[in-house]
């Protein structure tokens, strides 16, 4: 995996000067991030650095106070999560947000909603087209469960899955929307070493299948091995950006992680 892939692929996501305040708290200030197609990009930083806030701005859950975000060359809708998903950004959540009383399969089928069309009339009259679409939705949902490795759990209730499987399910549900960019908020949290390795394999596979990845993670070593580029946030500001080696050697990053004086 060469670092020059970033320049080869066009910029898929380009956030410039993003700012977000909560009252007096400056959660994000002048954050810029460029992400190329076919890459895995890490977003790291200490607790409360603003990583999740950046995700929320990106996916339309928060409206930024400043800055612009372009996706595939066009401005990204602001403050409209469903429109962002339609444009091709799907995400997972730091605190897993599955439809926990629905089955595993149904969760992924909901993800297909945005790429399918059947309406009320189709449902009420059970037209041939609707039945065909419904079958296709179920089939591709099963395919995705297989892809993330939880096909055997399809009929279980989502909330009863193990922690690791819930994280996988969230990824499958996000992939069901056919995203061009998959944003993962601490996907490895709470996983053991084996699960982390499997997750890294899955993330690479998704990237190889043509979906760029932006991921938040606290385990710096794990991120460094997985990512092509890393952006580091601290107190809402970007303090470093570059290849894993560059970033981890950066004095400001060492300072942020180990405390002042360590650099």
């Amino acid at each position: 995996m060469s670092r020059s892939e970033v320049s080869q692929g066009g910029a898929l996501l380009k956030a410039v000067g993003v700012g977000k305040r909560f009252g007096g708290l400056r959660a994000l200030h002048d954050v810029s991030l460029v992400l190329g197609e076919g890459t895995i990009t890490g977003l790291i930083g200490p607790n409360g650095a603003g990583k999740t806030t950046f995700f929320n701005v990106l996916t339309g859950i928060y409206k930024p106070d400043a800055g612009t975000v372009h996706f595939s060359g066009e401005p990204l809708p602001v403050g409209r999560p469903h429109a962002v998903a339609t444009r091709g950004i799907a995400r997972t959540f730091q605190n897993i947000r599955l439809f926990s009383n629905m089955t595993v399969l149904e969760n992924v089928m909901v993800g297909r909603h945005v790429r399918t069309h059947a309406g009320v009339l189709g449902a009420v009259f059970k037209t041939a087209a609707t039945c065909r679409e419904e079958a296709a939705i179920a089939a591709s949902a099963r395919g995705l469960l297989d892809y993330v490795g939880i096909a055997g759990q399809a009929q279980r209730i989502a909330g009863t899955l193990s922690y690791g499987d819930q994280r996988r399910l969230e990824i499958a549900r996000a992939l069901a929307t056919e995203p061009k960019l998959l944003a993962l908020d601490e996907p490895a949290a709470g996983m053991n070493a084996t699960e982390r390795t499997q997750l890294a394999d899955l993330v690479r596979r998704v990237r190889d299948d043509g979906t760029a990845i932006l991921l938040i993670e606290h385990d710096v070593k794990w991120v460094a091995r997985l990512c092509d580029r890393i952006t580091v946030l601290d107190y809402g500001e970007r303090i470093a950006e570059g290849s894993p080696q560059e970033v981890l050697a950066h004095p400001k990053v060492i300072e942020a992680y180990l405390g002042r004086g360590a650099a």
Partner: peptide, 24 residues
């Protein structure tokens, strides 16, 4: 049992997650 009914159920369960999956 339809695509719409499933979307309603998703909104009932977690509106924010539903919106993030592209549900209007």
């Amino acid at each position: 049992g339809s695509r719409i009914g499933r979307a309603w159920a998703a909104i009932r369960e977690d509106e924010l997650a539903a919106a993030s999956m592209g549900l209007n």
